[in-house]
Amino acid sequence: MELDVIQYEIDKETEQKLGRTLKKFIDKSGADFILLADKAGRTISFYGKNLDEVTVEFIASIISGLFGAASEMAKFISDSDEMDTIQYETRNQSVIVKAVSEKFLIGVICPKGVAIGSVRLFIRDLVDELCKHFKEIKLTPSKLVKLTPDMIEEKLNSILGQ
């Protein structure tokens, strides 16, 4: 298997559907932040809390790393096991990270006052809905950059220096 810059392509319409689905989840569940990312830690969409994109990108990396590390732990215990959800608490927040299909993850942050059991029920519905949207995502063999190697060389040299 070859690596691609991003191995899937999300069209505008699907992106909007994903965004609306996340918003609906926040409105219903009482959670105050949701992030949808791929397992490599790339943000796809997020909604809630007033966080800037850079912070969200860091959160995406951390949740994908946490999920990956927990998956490794699961494998130590049972080879055939598969990671599905991790949940942890800070003094003021509960955090749930859940797999959505094979490629993606959601991270949900809730204030401590919110009943976590009901949030998990909403997450179950959310995952079903997201999976439907993901069926519309095209898997692409590779993404091409509309640049030649010479152009890349020249431009990077001018940005980064020789």
Binding site: S142, L144, V145, P149, I152, L156, N157, L160
Partner: peptide, 21 residues
């Protein structure tokens, strides 16, 4: 910086279209 520049070029070149597009 030279290392970083080299790896970015290598990654992008992988996705550069063959020839010029």
């Amino acid at each position: 910086l030279e290392t970083f520049s080299s790896i970015v070029k290598k990654v992008l070149n992988r996705y550069a279209e063959k020839g010029s597009v």
